[in-house]
Structures are given as structure tokens and as C-alpha cells.
């Protein structure tokens, strides 16, 4: 491609990405959105700079359910197709975090385990820290708190704090390795 056509297609891609993110209240510099994203709900969605949302495999869902719900994607976050983030309170994804295909993150269980299924349990705001990698099909339940640079293996179900630099995996989850410091 000639440099002119290259820059033209880049400009068009950027415009298209912004069009797909029109439901977001804040969008940073040069977002990349491929395929479909489904942003809905009454809440707010903030997207940082250089975010990549690759919805070619399946649509990506960002659902800020009620009017005071908040989803924040930090700078350089990459999300693969089929991922679904559902916030009733808030979900914060730190800079450089990578979320794999078909992952599910929710900060509310929506139904209690016992008794009246129509009562809604309390939300636990979810924080996915900087540089976290979440493998495909992993499920992050209310109470999950992924600290800086930790890794969640594909298919793992998490509902607790994972310390920085730790890799967890398996069902039930266990620590697979720890980062050796120093």
C-alpha cells in the first residue's frame, strides 16, 4: 500500500472504532475495535488510550447495569472476543491487562445461593490490576481481586484476592507458581 492509502485506512479504522465506542462516556487516544462490541446498560463506561477490543470471534459485552455502575478499562488493555464484563457496582481493569476469549467478570452474583432467588446480594467492586493476564474462559466472580501482574490460567474460577505475580489455575483453583522476587 502507498503511504497515503495506509494512513487513510488507519484514519478510517480509528473513526470506525470511535463509532463503535460511542456509548462510552470517555474514550482515550487511538482505540482499536475489531468486530462487534456490545456496550449497554444505564451506567458509565470509560476506556483508556490504545485499548484493543477484538470482537471478531464473538461480540464483547460491556454491561454497566444500573445508573451508578461503572466499568473502567485502563490504557493498553486488550480484550478478546466473547469476553463479558458485567458491573452492577464497578469493574476496574488496570493498564496493560489482557483478558482472554469468553472470560466472564461479574461483581454481583444476582441471586442468593439459598432462599429467595429474587433478592439481590451485595456487590463487591472488582479490581483487575495492572499487567494481569486472564486466560480464556476464566470466570471472575464477586470478591475476585487480581493484583499487579498475576496470571489466571484458562478456565479457572476465581472469587478471592490473588496476590501480585502469582499464577493460579485448576478447579478448584490453586497456586501454580509464584514470581521469585529479587
Amino acid at each position: 500500500m502507498t503511504p497515503l492509502r495506509q494512513s487513510l485506512s488507519r484514519e478510517l479504522g480509528g473513526l470506525l472504532s470511535r463509532l463503535k465506542l460511542r456509548r462510552c462516556q470517555e474514550v482515550g487516544d487511538s482505540p482499536t475495535v475489531l468486530g462487534r462490541v456490545w456496550i449497554h446498560g444505564a451506567g458509565r463506561v470509560h476506556v483508556g488510550s490504545r485499548v484493543v477490543l477484538d470482537g471478531r470471534l464473538a461480540p464483547i459485552e460491556l454491561h454497566a447495569m444500573s445508573s451508578d455502575s461503572l466499568i473502567i478499562l485502563g490504557d493498553d488493555v486488550a480484550i478478546e472476543g466473547g469476553a463479558s464484563l458485567e458491573a452492577l457496582s464497578s469493574i476496574t481493569v488496570g493498564p496493560g491487562a489482557r483478558l482472554g476469549a469468553f472470560i466472564k467478570a461479574m461483581d454481583n452474583q444476582h441471586h442468593p445461593l439459598r432462599g429467595n432467588r429474587h433478592e439481590r446480594p451485595a456487590s463487591v467492586p472488582m479490581v483487575i490490576a495492572e499487567g494481569v493476564t486472564v486466560g480464556s474462559r476464566a470466570i471472575l466472580l464477586p470478591g475476585a481481586q487480581l493484583q499487579k501482574g498475576c496470571t489466571v490460567a484458562p478456565g479457572t474460577v476465581i472469587s478471592r484476592k490473588i496476590p501480585a505475580g502469582v499464577t493460579v489455575g485448576g478447579a478448584p483453583a490453586r497456586v501454580l507458581r509464584r514470581e521469585v522476587t529479587g
Partner: peptide, 12 residues
């Protein structure tokens, strides 16, 4: 400990 945690405790 929540339900996922209980499963981890049992496995441990």
C-alpha cells in the same frame, strides 16, 4: 470463606 474458597480448602 465463600463457596469457591471452601472448595479450595477441601482440596488443600
Amino acid at each position: 470463606i465463600d463457596s469457591t474458597g471452601m472448595m479450595e480448602l477441601v482440596a488443600f
